[in-house]
């Protein structure tokens, strides 16, 4: 069951969260300071664990791809430092050993910080509510909005479909399916899943058309997320923390 904190974050208007996340992402990109990035990562962790009751293990697992991405920056920066003079110059002012390593660490942390801010948005936002908010407040056309929504919904469906395919293949090969597919199995699923995605998109389009989704006709939007005092408080607190951090880290 969702805790009260979970309800607070989920009840926020997705556009408030989007705006705050966009500002924090911009800050993470522009503020080349390792302490700032660390603070951003820890803050997201704290908020997700305390308010969203997200397991630290889940957060660690979600950080893996961003860490790998950041590792690329780190190695590039250490091995090819002449390519990043500006970054090296800026990073030299931070207390992380050599200039090249310091710049690499900055880029590494920045990748994780951006990833965690995105994760915060994804874990606290219902895709349906997000699309509805975009249609209601950003005048996103319903056809595009629902297409976007269908794409977002396709991700978990692809996982379920992949699982059914794995069962069928495991049956044909005479072995029980592994918990996590191996690289060959994963690659072999790509084309069937693509075919599924195309079929599913066609069916969804027919379903929406048969139920009257058309362009240029007025329509009602139900369950539109409302803006409330909580949104104002959330934005104010998030920006205040950002300002404090910026000042504290000397920018």
């Amino acid at each position: 069951m969702a805790g009260p904190g979970r309800r607070v974050l989920n009840a926020l208007n997705p556009l408030s969260k989007l705006a705050v996340c966009a500002i924090w992402l911009a800050a993470s990109v522009l503020i080349f300071d390792a302490w700032f990035q660390i603070a951003a990562i820890l803050l997201v962790w704290l908020v997700l664990i305390v308010f969203q009751r997200t397991s630290p293990l889940v957060l660690l697992a979600l950080m893996v791809p961003f860490c790998l991405f950041g590792l690329g920056f780190l190695t590039t920066s250490v091995l090819f430092r002449q390519e990043s003079d500006f970054a090296v110059q800026v990073a030299s002012e931070t207390p992380f050993g050599s200039r090249a390593f310091s710049a690499g660490v900055n880029l590494f942390l920045r990748a994780i910080a951006c990833g965690m801010i995105s994760t915060f948005f994804a874990l606290t936002t219902d895709p349906g509510a997000f699309v509805r908010a975009l249609m209601a407040y950003a005048k996103l056309p319903p056809r595009i909005g629902y297409s976007l929504f269908a794409v977002m919904q396709l991700v978990p469906d692809l996982a379920a479909e992949a699982q059914q395919m794995r069962f069928a293949r495991a049956m044909k090969s005479g072995r029980a399916p592994r918990r996590i597919p191996g690289p060959f199995e994963a690659v072999s699923l790509v084309i069937p899943l693509l075919a599924f995605g195309i079929r599913r998109a066609g069916r969804t389009a027919i379903a929406m058309e048969a139920r009257g989704l058309a362009t240029g006709t007025p329509r009602t939007l139900t369950n539109v997320p409302k803006f409330s005092v909580r949104d104002a408080a959330f934005v104010a607190i998030a920006l205040a923390i950002l300002g404090s951090l910026t000042v504290a880290t000397g920018r």
Partner: peptide, 13 residues
């Protein structure tokens, strides 16, 4: 219209 395949009637919402 109520299609043979429920996925053709529903949109995943």
């Amino acid at each position: 219209q109520y299609f043979q395949d429920a996925d053709q009637t529903l949109c995943g919402m």
